[in-house]
Design a protein around this nucleic acid. Sequence first.
DNA 1: CCGGATGTTCACCT
DNA 2: GAGGTGAACATCCG
Length: 259
Amino acid sequence: MPEMLEVEIYRRAAATAVGRRIVAVHAPDPWYLKGGIDADIVTAALTGQQILADRRIGKLLLLDTSGPTLGLRFGMTGVLDVDGQRSIDALEYSTHRRDPQWERFILHLDDGGALRMRDPRRLGGVELDPDVSMLGPDAAVVTLAELVAILADSSAPLKARLMDQGRLAGLGNLLADEVLWRSGFDPGRAARSLTPDDVSHLHRVMRRTLRQLDRRGGSHLGDLQQQRSRTGCCPIDGAALLRRTIGGRTTYSCPQHQR
DNA sequence: CCGGATGTTCACCT
DNA sequence: GAGGTGAACATCCG
């Protein structure tokens, strides 16, 4: 999906819907409804309810209502529009087009506004009362002690562990590469090989990176991102970037300074 | 035309 | 059990 920073943008947009009431639900795509629910069930559960609060855990957007809590996942190409206002102008790897066919889920609100999810690839989904116990702490607020525990005793590649949403929620492929590149750690080394000082450094760099890229406006605005291609060079030392598959995802790293 | 792209889930290996 | 791989979802882009 968009990674946590994009979902955070969606959350801020959705916050404007807090206090308003859902007058109609449009769920044209059964595939998009997760957890064994259908359009009738969601409609019955949400119609007439008031939106009470907006939350985000990792890449999951949660809207608490006077009825159930609504869980929104965006896959790689999902976008949230509130009141016809596109909350994000450009999404990497997605189109700027706006095909009515891609509207997967719409909440009509009592003042004539609406909250709509568009998702060309249908990789996202909507769920009622999602089980958030399956998610680790959010990467923006994870404590050092928690991060130490997340990385301890694992032979998995460091990057794979950081992207494991059940252990740490929020980092996707681009953010993981950016954070590891900035902190100087090889994405492929075993998670447990980091010393306490290493984890402390990683923790600081991760939080700083998330704060900075949030201000810049997205996960695709990192310093490594522009060089993330087969011919890319490290912006720090100019070395040709290494391209590998780690944790099932294409990974770019600098063989020179990431150890 | 082919491969790959901010993601998750699942079946199937090692 | 822990990890890894490849497929699936559907569309666009180089």
